[in-house]
Design a protein around this nucleic acid. Structure first.
Lengths: 212, 212
DNA sequence: CCCTGTGAATTTATTCACAGCA
DNA sequence: TGCTGTGAATAAATTCACAGGG
C-alpha cells in the first residue's frame, strides 16, 4: 500500500493508542474503539486501513498488535526525547504531566531556563539546566522535539537555535510564530488565549438540545 | 446574507483579532493581514466576507471597524467571563496568561480549587475560591465558560455541575471526555500528551527542505 | 452472520480566477 | 489600477454502502 496518511488521521491515532494501552482487552472492534474514543467506527476503520489491514473480518483487531503498529507509525516505538524550554508554571505542568505516565515512548529528558534561582533544581525527576547548555543537551540526549513555554520575546531566537541543533518538531505555546522560514521543521502552535476566544463563539452558537 | 460560518473560519478569527489589536494601522489589506498571520489573502477575504462586506475595493479594510466586527462575531463585545477549575500549575499559568493582557473582552473572574492551603490566596488578581461555591460563582459573575485543569477523576462530575449551572462552553485539559451526553454544551478538548504524541510523527515525516 | 476494508457519494475547506467598484 | 467579493474548481475529510472473508 503506502499512500500518504492524512494529518487528521495522525491526530486521532494517539487517542486510539491511549485507549488500547489501558483497555485490558485482547481484541477490539472498530465499534467499541469508536464508542470509547468518540469517533465513528467507519472513520476508525479507514484510519487503521491506511497502514495496512490488521483486522480480522468478523472478529476485529488484536489490541497488542494494533497498539504496537500505532507506536510504530507515530515513531514512538524507538522512543522520542523532548526538551521543555521555560520552567514557568506551564513548563512545570507539562513536565509533571508527561512524566507521571512512566512510559518509555515519549520522555521529557530536560528542562531549560535562564533563571539562576531554579537552575539546578528538579521538576518531577527532570533537572533544570541553564539555557546555555541547549545545544549540548540536544546532542547528548538525541532530542527530537522541543516544547516552548517561554515569553514571546525569547521564543523566536531559541527556536532557531534548536532547529540549527537538529530539532525538527516543536510544540509552541508562545504567542508568536517561530521558524517561519524553515521547511525542515514542523511547528504545532497552541495559543491558549486564542483557543478561549474562539470558544467564546460557541457560548452562544451551540443551540440548546438540537435533536441528536 | 447570514449563512453558517464554518468552524475553520471561527478558529482563525482570534488570530486576525490579535494582529488588528496591535498593528497600529488605520487600514489593512487582506495581503498584509495574511502575511502577518500566516494565512492566504484569499482565505482571509473569504472569512471576512462571511459576515458581510466591510472592505473597500481598491483600498482594504478599516482596522477599527473590522476589529469591532470580529469581537461581535465571537461574542467578545459584551465580555465573556470564565472560571478556571483547578489551581495547579496549568491553571495558574492560564490565569496569569489571560490576566496580563488587560482586556475586557475575555476575563477570568474566578479560580476554584479544593486545596484548603491555597483557598483564599490570589493568582494574578483573581482569588482562589472553594469548590463548593462553584454554582454560586457562576450565578454571581454570569460565567459562560469554564477551563478545566483538574485531575481526570474529578473532571466529569465538575463539568456536569457547571453545565447544570448554565455554563455552555468548556476548555478541557483533563484527559477524559466530559459532558458526552449533552448537546447543549460545547467542549474543546486539549490533551497535551496526545498533542506531543501526534507531533512525534512529524519528527521524521517532515522532509528536510522540500522545495517551497 | 459479523465485522473489516474500500470504492463511491457527500460534505467541508481551500485555492483559483476574475468581475466590479473605489 | 488595486484590492475586495464571490462563483467555480479543486482538494481534503467524512460518511455511506456494500462486497467479501472468517
Amino acid at each position: 500500500m503506502q499512500q500518504r496518511i492524512p494529518d487528521a488521521t495522525i491526530r486521532r491515532l494517539p487517542a486510539y493508542l491511549r485507549w488500547l494501552s489501558t483497555c485490558n482487552l485482547e481484541r477490539v472492534t472498530s465499534g467499541i474503539l469508536g464508542q470509547a474514543t468518540g469517533f465513528s467506527s467507519e472513520q476508525i476503520r479507514k484510519d487503521l486501513a491506511y497502514f495496512g489491514a490488521f483486522g480480522t473480518r468478523g472478529v476485529g483487531y488484536d489490541v497488542k498488535a494494533l497498539r504496537q503498529e500505532i507506536l510504530r507509525i507515530l515513531q514512538l516505538d524507538r522512543g522520542v526525547r523532548a526538551v521543555v524550554v521555560g520552567a514557568g508554571h506551564l513548563g512545570t505542568a507539562l513536565v509533571r504531566y508527561v512524566g507521571q505516565s512512566r512510559q518509555r515512548d515519549l520522555e521529557i529528558v530536560a528542562v531549560v531556563d535562564n533563571d539562576s534561582d531554579i537552575i539546578g533544581t528538579t521538576i518531577g525527576h527532570v533537572s533544570v539546566e541553564p539555557i546555555e547548555k541547549l545545544e549540548q543537551l540536544v546532542e547528548e540526549y538525541d532530542i527530537g522535539m522541543a516544547v516552548l513555554t517561554l515569553p514571546a520575546s525569547a521564543a523566536v531566537e531559541i527556536a532557531e537555535r534548536l532547529a540549527n541543533a537538529g530539532v525538527h518538531a516543536f510544540l509552541n505555546f508562545a504567542p508568536v510564530p517561530v521558524c517561519t522560514k524553515r521547511f525542515d521543521v514542523f511547528v504545532q502552535q497552541i495559543d491558549l488565549t486564542l483557543e478561549m476566544q474562539a470558544l467564546s463563539y460557541f457560548v452562544q452558537a451551540r443551540q440548546p438540545h438540537p435533536i441528536p
